[in-house]
Structure formats: C-alpha cells, structure tokens
Design a protein around this nucleic acid. Structure first.
Lengths: 350, 350
DNA sequence: TGTTCATTTTTAAACGTTTCAATTTATTTT
DNA sequence: AAAATAAATTGAAACGTTTAAAAATGAACA
C-alpha cells in the first residue's frame, strides 16, 4: 500500500506538504500542489482513513443498529440512510439485532420476563461495544423498541437518532405519521361516499395502533359519521386476524361497505376472506390497507393503501445526524413525516 | 475516552503488559493479569480498534457491496452474512449501489450504451475507493452483475466473494441452484400426476432463466413427458408477463393442467388472470412459483413455490471469506446451495 | 555469594496520518 | 544592499496500539 511518504518522495516534498494539499487547508504554491497531485495520481494513492481517524480522533463512520434487517421497512430506510451518508463521505457500519428471529425475545416482551429481556439487551450491548471499539461518530437506531435500548445506547457517547418508532424524552427521532396516515385512509373511503367503515386494529396496546385508531375516529367525527363499536375489531397485525374479522364483519346484520385495515397483511386476510365467501372486491366491500407492502400492487384486486415514507425517514435521520455532527443540532427533536395515499382497485365509489 | 495508558497507570504496570494481557499472547503472571483485568473493568476500557488496525495493518471489517439492498433477497443474505461475521468479531461496512433506482443503468444494460454503463461503474468505483480508504479485510458482492464489476473489485486487493450470481473464472461464488430448484418444482407437479405442464420463462437470455429452463426440460424428459413448445411462454420476470401468458395458455385448445412460473411475481399474475377468468386454483389449473417471496403465503390460494436458501448463502459466503482470511482458502470456488420446495395450496393432485 | 538461566516486565520504535512551531525562501520596504 | 515582512515548506511530535528487543527480577546451582 502506498503511503503519504511515497507520495512525498516522488513529489520531492515533505509529508506535511502532501497532507496540506490533501486537506487544502494551508496555502500551498500552485506548482508544488500540481507536483503533489500528479504524484498522487501516478501512485494511485488513497489516504489511509485508519491513520486519519487515529490522528484526528474522529471516524467518518456511522453505526446503524437495526432490530431486524429482514423487516419489510428496513431496506428502504437503510437505503435512505446510506445514500445520504455516502454523499457526505461517511461510511456505514451495520449491526443487525434480528429480534424477530429470537423466540426468547418475543416471549420477553409478551411476558415481561426480565431474564429473557436480557438476552435482547445483551445483543444490543454487544453491538454497542463493537461500535464503541471502532469509535463511530454517530448511531442510528432502527426499530420499535427504543425504550429497551435507551439506557444502553448513550454509553457510546455519540449522537443517537432513532427512527421507525416514537421516543419519549428529548431524543432525536424520525418517524412516519401514524395518525395522519390513518386519517388519510379513512378520508379516502369517506370521499368515495362510504359511511359504514369498519376497522381492523393492530395490537391495541401499541403506540402505532393507538394513533391510527385516533386517526380513524377523528376522521369519522370530522365528517359527522357515528363511531360504531361493532365495526371496530381487534387484531394483532397478522394475516389471520384480518381474515377472521372480515368474515365476522360480513356476517353482521348491517355489514360495513368499507373496511380499513391497520396493516396490509391483515388486509390480505380480509381480501381472501371475501374471496372465500365468493364476494367481489370492491363491489361487495371496499378494503383499504396501511403499509404499502411491495406486493400490495399484486393482490386481487390491487390494494389501495397508505405508503410509509421509509426512504425519506432514512434521509431525514441521516440529515439530522450530520447536522448534529457539524454542530448545528436541529431544534426540533421529534420529526413526523406524512404518509401518502396509494389509490388502487380495492375501493370503489358508493 | 480511556486508553491503554490509563489502564496501565491504574494497574501500576507498563502499557506493554496491558497489551499482553489483552492479547494473552505472552506469559503474564496471574497476579499482574488480575490487577490489569480489574483496572480494565473498573475503567470500562474498550481498546481502540482504530489504533489496533493501524499498528497491525489489518482491519476486522468486511465490506459488503449490494447492488440493491431493497431487493427481496438482500435482507436475508445480509442477515446471514452479518450473523456469521458478528460471531467472529468482524464488523460490516455496507455500500448500496441501488442499481434498480438508476434509470440510466437499466438503459445501459438494455441498450449496451457504454457511456451509461460507466455511471454504474463509477458508483462501484466510488464504493471500492471508500472501502480501500478504510482498508477493509475482505469484500462481499451481492448482485447479478459480477461481470460488470469484475475488473474493478480486484483493485481493492483483498479477497472477494460473490453471491447471488454466477461468476466465470475462478472467483469465489455462492449461489442457489437454479437448475435443481426448477427441476424440483416440476417434479412436484409431476408427482401430483400432471403431464401437461406449461412454463412461463424469465428473460431467456439471463443465466438463471436458462438454467431453470434446463431443469424444466430435464424433469419432463426424465419422466418421459413430451416437451410441448406451445406450453413454453416467454416472459421477463414481471407480473404482467405471468398475467398475459396465463390467459393465452388457458385459451389453448388443449390447455395445460399445471403451470410452472419462473418467478413468484409472474405466478401472481397467473393467479390473478385465472381469477379474472372466474377459474378456480388449483381446481382448474395448478400454479407453481419460484422465489418464495414473503407474500406468497398470502396469495389466494397460497402459492406453492421454491424457496431460495438466501440466509444460508450469506452464511456460506461469510464462512468462505473467513476461511480465506485465515489462510485456509477452500478448494471449491463455486458453491451451489440447493433450493427447497414449499408446498402450499396452489397445486393439486390430478 | 556470585553466576547462570528462566520468567516476567519495561522500553521504545513503529503504523500513517495531522498539525503547529520552526525554518527556509521569496518579496517588499527602507 | 540590508532589513523587515510575508509566504511556503519542513520537522517533529502526537494519536493509541503492538511487538521485538532490552532490562529487571527471581530461582536454581556451583
């Protein structure tokens, strides 16, 4: 590997001068500068960032801890992050906690089993130690359990930006707007003339489900539509919840004409339930999802849904991180990016 | 940040001794060792990998270049990679080329426009330079265009392992077995008694499509079934290809009883085409996919398909990389991991 | 008690940069 | 032409480790 010494020797100058043209911080005469530049090009010299980091004691690397890189949302968020960081000459050190593959961890959250929770926290600690050892400049956390890592990440002693969750306190946090997204979905249905709009909930003790419920209720209220408890159905984000609840809704004496599912996955269940009942969508019932999974364009019929601004969240989180690192910490700590509506074939005018 | 000097001072020894207990390479007396260990714990000391890397001139970091982290396959592969590397105390530096978001690049491959191809290659070069600067120990490439980067990656002068593609030459490469997967899919149909099995192809000039075609043809041949040209339909991996070709197949004077689609996406098209014709699956036609996209469990009916060993590919690629780095380069350069069959509801006994 | 050897510990030089004080060179002023 | 100033360049010390060689310590032996 060629070093700054090789360049200096070839250009006939000292290494200090080479460093100066590299960092163009001091006045170097044009001729010298040209000589050095040529030498750099000739030797294909690329400065060793490890040595730079050691000297300047700052590393142009951002750590990313993702709860589950296989989650549908992770790819887009990470892409948004990477693109922004890459443009600003930062590189990215990725750690995956793979929470969803840890049976123990699922149980931990269900049963509040402290010992098992520690298995998750151990893996977070391991990631944090790794990133500490490599002296990253900042940390992005992607996942829905910021509370469970909130006491571990600060040990790193670098700025932290959370995304894909809500945080309390004054943490920096970028998320999509659950309330606005749900509100928007219901308004799409109201705009098409629906007044009997059912709801299939995600697990109701979660923050997103709660916010989406508020969006649903307020949209109804603002349009003077009654909230009918028999139209609000419990669910847990999963396919089968949508399937079963849709069946029950259709069997109601006064069935709804439209259904808003808090997740696309449950909407798939609802669609298939209707199909199994030999009903037609949207003729017999309109169905609106939330998430805009990749495959929602290919359901039968294609699913109208709410798109999450995942890529934008990544970009925004990255921008906030760089602003902090540059000494311009944004005043606003919690950023909500609006969702958008994706109109397809599963809802109809009534 | 606490350094080795702080530890040495607290333990009352020299930094060399601290280093020796850290790397447990030289004989250190038990008492001294204990004193140092206590000091380390007390100060929460974590060695600075940057300084270690500089001194030893080896960096426990692996670069990953992904053509498209948003592709359905990337998450699983990267998870497999990360888990293996993490277990072996390597960290991971991720670069995303986002090929599929580059309109120019798509065109480049379609029209062989050299100038535009350079846009892709420029971004590869940028990634390689970044990884060169940070002196990564190895490089994993995830993507289907290894030929287009084959002359750029070696500049890094570290071991390269390709995955999710086939390479020529003697590059290390881990992939799933297209031939075996397709063969397995067709055999599933034959086992159920089908003899009139149609095929919807992916873009036929691609290597995967070619291998899958061989699998289809050989499976038929081995079971003494005729290859019927009218059953073989052109496609380009996309939803609409499956939709249109399925319609045409169903309109044939002697329509097939089963259909093997080279991708799940095209299988979705085929399913929806049948649904639009008011046909029932699998009663009227059995449909078998390839890819096992996440959504394939939720189509109507749930799609029987071929699962790709993506996570295993990541693990294997990582293992090969570590073997190379440890000086035990595997003899075998091209590794094919078998696909598995995922039986669901879209095929039936005949 | 001094010598020899084995064991443990320390010393100091690297690794490839940045940075600032010190020096050299060039330019201006008197 | 000498002195004063400005501009460009160099030298050397850091950054936090590892590691070989050197030194110190302790045990065994004559």
């Amino acid at each position: 590997m060629t070093t700054i010494h090789d360049v200096a020797r070839l250009a006939g100058v000292s290494i200090g001068t080479v460093s100066n043209v590299l960092n163009q911080n001091k006045k170097v005469s044009p001729e010298t500068s040209a000589r050095v530049t040529n030498a750099i090009r000739e030797l294909n010299y690329i400065p060793n960032t490890i040595a730079q980091s050691l000297k300047t004691s700052q590393n142009r690397v951002i750590g990313i801890i993702a709860e589950d890189i296989r989650a549908f949302s992770s790819g887009d968020i990470i892409d948004g992050l990477c693109e922004f960081f890459e443009k600003n000459d930062y590189s990215v050190n990725l750690c995956n906690l793979r929470v969803n593959n840890r049976v123990e961890h699922e149980q931990a959250f269900l049963y509040q089993d402290l010992e098992e929770t520690n298995s998750f926290q151990r893996s977070v600690t391991k990631a944090v130690n790794l990133l500490t050892a490599s002296r990253v400049s900042g940390l992005i956390y992607i996942g829905v359990h910021p509370r469970d890592v909130g006491h571990i990440l600060p040990r790193l002693n670098v700025p932290v930006v959370y995304t894909y969750a809500y945080t309390q306190n004054d943490d920096y946090c970028v998320n999509y707007d659950d309330y606005q997204g749900a509100h928007l979905a219901v308004e799409q249905l109201i705009d098409k003339g629906h007044s009997k709009i059912a709801l299939i909930c995600g697990s109701i003790d979660s923050i997103p489900a709660h916010k989406r419920l508020m969006g649903y209720q307020n949209a109804l209220m603002e349009h003077n539509l009654p909230f009918r408890p028999e139209y609000m159905r419990a669910g847990n984000w999963h396919y089968m919840d949508g399937y079963k609840q849709c069946l029950e809704l259709l069997a109601l004496p006064d069935p709804p004409t439209a259904l808003f599912s808090m997740s696309d996955l449950m909407a798939y269940g609802a669609i298939n339930a209707a199909l199994d009942r030999n009903l037609r969508i949207p003729d017999d019932i309109s169905i609106h999802g939330f998430d805009n999974l990749k495959h929602s364009a290919y359901t039968h019929p294609a699913l109208s849904t709410i798109a999450l601004p995942l890529w934008e969240m990544g970009q925004r989180a990255a921008r906030i991180m760089l602003d902090i690192l540059r000494g311009n910490p944004p005043a606003e700590h919690g950023v909500l990016i609006p969702c958008t509506s994706v109109g397809r074939d599963s809802i109809r005018e009534i």
